[in-house]
Amino acid sequence: MTNSARIITEGAWNWANAINTIMLREIRCRFAGDPLGYLWTFLVPVLWIGTLMFFFSLLGRRPAIPVDTSVFIATGVVPYVLFRYTISSMTRVASTHRHLVHFANVRVSDLLFAAALLELINALIIFAVIFALITLLDQMPEVDDPLQTVHGILLTAVFAASVGRFAAIAGMVSETAKRMVPVILRPMFWISGIFFIAPELPSKILPFLDWNPLLHAIETTRDGVFLDYSSSFADDWVPLTVSAAFLLASYVLQTAARRGSDRIELT
């Protein structure tokens, strides 16, 4: 192995070790002191699904496609949870783990990447756990196209990570921006197709929601899960283009601000 190849391999190995350590630290820190600890990460989406199922039955609502209600809600809740958790996690690690930049050349970007990767892994585990639970309840859900399903989850993860990166950098520069992020994201719960599919929307509203990348990602996920549903609405370009725009904006902000309000470099 040449000298430069050894340096690159060693650098990549050190970086992977740093990302792994940051993720392990985050798992241990997030619910430190709580008896249920990290289990909350997986319990909350299950509770959400249970709550939405309760309201569906209370209102006598059924999904617009002939599929099980719990699976329908799960295919909306899991991507949404991935989206929200990724953004809040990236914003939080930028604050709670920021002092790690004093150690071993950890950069702010490493903290954010580790947080986004951890949330993606969590989402895949949540998806598997929920489907296992539903299978245990003897309803035997069948995933039509697992690759398409993972494709939908990955689209969500990319979009969430780019918005999360922008939100985290903005939050490090300005306390006001940090407080505004959850407020701005709140409507996404109602407009992203958690409890409806795109064809159900009135034709007057549809053009306005066509820009919503999360709606496209959830439609892609459902397209993959359900045999009887093929989404003509889902379009990869919307989440990918908006993600690229947020990513670019985050780098522009990072370059313009150079360092956060606590003088830690935005590297």
Partner: peptide, 12 residues
């Protein structure tokens, strides 16, 4: 920096 407590998380 020697003696820094900055990297120590209160919950751990």
């Amino acid at each position: 920096p020697i003696g820094t407590t900055a990297g120590f998380h209160a919950g751990l």
